[in-house]
């Protein structure tokens, strides 16, 4: 058995792998947008007054939190085309990006919904009453008073959700999209499986750097946003 490793080559691999970073970024940003929009709708549903909609929203969140991302990818990528085929719709030729983005968008939307719900509930009830007491409408009170405070509360959680989403983009290779991990796999298979360890470590380091940057960014944003008006301790 040959266990010779060439760790000095890792930076070179990192540079090669980074050529696929725009694909990773595209997946991240589009699925982030979807997850925020969908998450907002689900959060609103779960906080609403209609029992049926509350139940559906809660069920959606719970379902998405129970299913492994990989299984959801398989369901959408392998299963969905079969179902739609039965209905006479052919989506098997669709861009593979669609499937990974849809999976991550759906999956993350549940986390986003939970985040928004928790942040909304964390805003003191008196704030809404005070807004009403000066004559605001519900929508105005949300826009001017509740949302700005909830956003500040949600920032750390939002950072976490984005980091998790970013990590999950690594499953894009499953449907054959060449993101950074896909690129790493392509490099190793081009050299017949040699240097596997080096390329995976190189990919790991890229994820590490970006995650640390995202984390710092989130902390910075939180600091700027809540400057001078920390949540009251009580």
């Amino acid at each position: 058995m040959n266990y010779s490793y060439d760790f000095a080559s890792i930076p070179d691999y990192m540079i090669k792998i980074m050529t696929a970073f725009p694909v990773t970024l595209e997946i991240l940003l589009i699925s982030l947008l979807i997850s925020l929009l969908l998450g907002a709708a689900v959060a609103a549903g779960s906080l609403g007054r209609k029992p049926v909609i509350v139940a559906i929203s809660r069920g959606y969140i719970s379902f998405m939190r129970g299913i492994p991302t990989l299984v959801l990818i398989f369901l959408l990528y392998l299963g969905l085309p079969q179902i739609l085929q039965g209905c006479g719709v052919n989506i098997s030729s669709w861009n593979k990006m669609f499937f990974i983005i849809a999976t991550l968008g759906l999956n993350t939307s549940a986390n986003m919904a939970e985040m928004m719900r928790a942040a909304y509930l964390a805003v003191d009830k008196g704030q809404l009453e005070a807004a009403y007491s000066v004559g605001m409408k519900g929508t105005t009170a949300f826009r001017r008073i509740i949302y700005p405070q909830a956003f500040g509360i949600a920032i750390p959680m939002l950072g976490n959700n984005i980091i998790n989403l970013f990590k999950e983009t690594s499953l894009a290779f499953t449907v054959g999209v060449i993101d950074i991990l896909g690129k790493a796999r392509a490099i190793t298979s081009a050299s017949y499986g040699a240097n596997k360890l080096e390329t995976y470590i190189a990919t790991g380091i890229i994820f590490w750097i970006v995650c640390v940057a995202l984390e710092q960014g989130s902390k910075y944003l939180e600091g700027v946003y809540t400057k001078g008006r920390k949540q009251a301790a009580s």
């Binding site: 058995m1 266990y3 980091i163 990590k167 999950e168 690594s170 499953l171 991990l181 596997k196 360890l197 995976y200 470590i201 990919t203 790991g204 994820f207 590490w208 970006v210 995650c211 640390v212």
Partner: peptide, 20 residues
């Protein structure tokens, strides 16, 4: 920090190739 930042699938690969 490393363990939290690297996707599980990559950790699995690294483990699979480095542990032996």
């Amino acid at each position: 920090s490393f363990m939290r930042s690297v996707p599980s699938v990559i950790l699995l690969y690294i483990s699979y190739y480095v542990m032996p």
